[in-house]
């Protein structure tokens, strides 16, 4: 066999080392961040910390969690991800189920589909969308972060394709047994679709957790900002006034920033390996359909 030849063994060794190097390249930035966040201010500011903390302490984390603004923002982000994902799934699953029927069952299906697809092809752009939120009176409201994101053509199509891949016979049997569409949907389709539902939910949770821009433009009151927007203001715009001087007093900016970035990334770090398996099967289902 080819993998027993000497040439292939050398290749395999080199390749394995290369893979480890690539893996490290993806991991090291996070490790550096973690090391800085647990280091003492002086070595962190002097740029001495690489991948292991110097002068280990958790001061930056304690300080971060003592900031009322930070904890408030964290709460808003959790709420946003929970409410946003639940509502998105509700709307997506219902629409996808109905649209997975053919034109004869759902009269006007093709019109619905094109109505939806067109939103993927063309958009009003940033300025008109902003004006709409102003006109709807949603500025500074929590719902400005939820409502515009609920209906996504991409999610609906992903679920629709999945529903269509399920055997028709089960649906027919269920309808013949006298179950209505709703019963068929809840009792047959949903239980069979858990992997796909997990995939789309993961996408949506991560999307909500990471969204910062809508908060930045729609929410003016800093006490109502989600965490991602607060982090963006502190880290990228370098605006520390938002945390207040008491937090800044004894801490280096570097360790504090590192701690906050890391806290912001924790939910994503937790959720992605766990759902990865479902996620891959889901995306493959959606994408390599031939």
């Amino acid at each position: 066999m080819y993998y027993k030849t000497r040439g292939y063994r050398i290749f395999n060794a080199v390749n394995s080392i290369f893979m480890a190097a690539v893996g490290l390249l993806c991991l090291l930035p996070m490790l550096h961040l973690l090391a800085v966040s647990f280091s003492a201010s002086a070595p962190a500011n002097a740029g001495l910390v690489s991948f292991w903390p110097i002068g280990f302490n958790a001061e930056a984390y304690l300080r971060t969690f003592s900031s009322r603004l930070f904890v408030g923002a964290l709460t808003i982000s959790v709420l946003r991800a929970a409410v946003g994902t639940a509502m998105t799934m509700f709307i997506t699953l219902m629409a996808a189920y109905a649209l997975s029927k053919d034109e004869r069952t759902l009269v006007g299906r093709n019109v619905y589909i094109w109505f939806m697809i067109f939103t993927m092809l063309f958009s009003g752009g940033l300025i008109p969308s902003y004006m709409l939120i102003v006109k709807l009176g949603l500025i500074n409201r929590f719902w400005a972060l939820i409502l515009p994101t609920l209906a996504s053509a991409y999610n609906i199509i992903l679920m629709l394709n999945f529903f269509r891949s399920l055997p028709r016979e089960m649906e027919e049997a269920s309808l013949i047994d006298g179950a209505g569409h709703l019963a068929t949907f809840f009792r047959i389709y949903l239980p069979l679709s858990l992997p796909a539902i997990a995939t789309v939910s993961l996408f949506t949770i991560v999307f909500h957790w990471n969204s910062y821009f809508d908060g930045l433009i729609y929410i003016g009151d800093k006490n109502r900002l989600p965490l991602a927007s607060v982090l963006q203001t502190i880290i990228v715009q370098q605006d520390f006034r938002i945390v207040g001087p008491e937090v800044m007093a004894r801490l280096s900016q570097r360790t504090l920033k590192a701690a906050q970035i890391f806290i912001g990334a924790i939910p994503v770090l937790l959720v992605y390996p766990f759902l990865q398996r479902y996620f891959i099967s889901g995306i493959v289902l959606g994408a390599v359909k031939q």
């Binding site: 996070m30 991602a228 982090l231 990334a265």
Partner: peptide
């Protein structure tokens, strides 16, 4: 990871 997170890391 979001670009906010990554930008925070890269800027540093």
């Amino acid at each position: 990871l979001s670009w906010v997170t990554l930008a925070g890391i890269l800027l540093d």
